[in-house]
């Protein structure tokens, strides 16, 4: 049984179809990366999965359980085991770093404060942000905020982690600190879906690559297959343009 199964997913924004018949699956612990030009539907796919954008058709199954995105309880159950890291970090501006990481475990998962804080501190240590635990988001650089956002996403012990272009808003010199943090996570058995423009990075960490264009998955396969011998014209085009940089 696949850990995550997406079948024939559609989503529309107004009259434009943002996702058209997307099917994709992932085994437990697999790292699947979504590549493709801006506006190809990578972010929308991730937003649909965590219930921020409603799908218009299709089926999503997680660990054998079908998700009903119109049902609050079902969406709640999905978010219980799935976390997302946004492009713009989305850290709560009114909370310290530590509070950002502990708010969901304490308030949503009702864990004891001491335990949640201990866990949060070990996560912050892992992303190299422990000494900033009392800082507010606006006192941190983009890269630092994004590392805190990763810690926050991990604090609820998700078994699926969505990363939505997490380095796109960062200064170039800050990109690597975030990529290093993610690289360290890929061997932990968490199923990961990564939307990214960092080709060298996704090639290195992914088990599979899905190329998206105009709301469809054009091609899906191992990194070496998609990058070195793409079968579709569109993929070849995209990869060659990107790799020229």
């Amino acid at each position: 049984m696949k850990h995550l199964e997406i079948r024939g997913l559609f989503s529309s924004y107004g009259s434009t179809r943002v996702l058209r018949d997307v099917s994709l699956d992932a085994d437990k612990g697999e790292v699947v990366s979504l590549i493709g030009p801006s506006g190809s539907g990578k972010s929308t796919l991730l937003r649909v999965l965590i219930g921020l954008t409603p799908p218009t058709a299709g089926e999503v199954t997680i660990a054998g359980e079908k998700v009903d995105y119109r049902n609050r309880r079902s969406v709640k159950a999905v978010r219980d085991r799935m976390s997302i890291v946004f492009q713009q970090y989305n850290l709560f501006q009114n909370m310290t770093v530590l509070r950002n990481v502990t708010v969901a475990p304490i308030k949503i998962k009702k864990r004891p404060r001491a335990e949640a804080e201990k866990n949060a501190m070990s996560l912050l240590k892992r992303v190299g942000m422990a000494e900033k635990k009392d800082a507010y988001p606006d006192e941190l650089s983009g890269g630092q905020q994004q590392r805190v956002a990763i810690a926050r996403a991990l604090a609820t012990n998700p078994d699926i982690l969505l990363l939505d272009e997490v380095t796109s808003a960062l200064d170039p010199e800050r990109v690597n600190e975030v990529l290093d943090t993610i690289r360290a996570l890929t061997s932990e058995g968490i199923t990961m879906l990564i939307a990214s423009h960092e080709m060298a990075f996704v090639r290195e960490v992914s088990t599979r690559i899905a190329m998206m264009d105009e709301g469809r998955i054009v091609e899906c396969g191992s990194p070496s297959r998609v990058f070195d011998s793409p079968t579709k014209e569109r993929t070849r085009d995209f990869v060659s343009k990107i790799l020229k940089h």
Partner: peptide, 10 residues
């Protein structure tokens, strides 16, 4: 985004 962050955390 602040509100979506809150939603995503359930």
């Amino acid at each position: 985004p602040q509100i979506e962050g809150a939603k995503a955390l359930n």
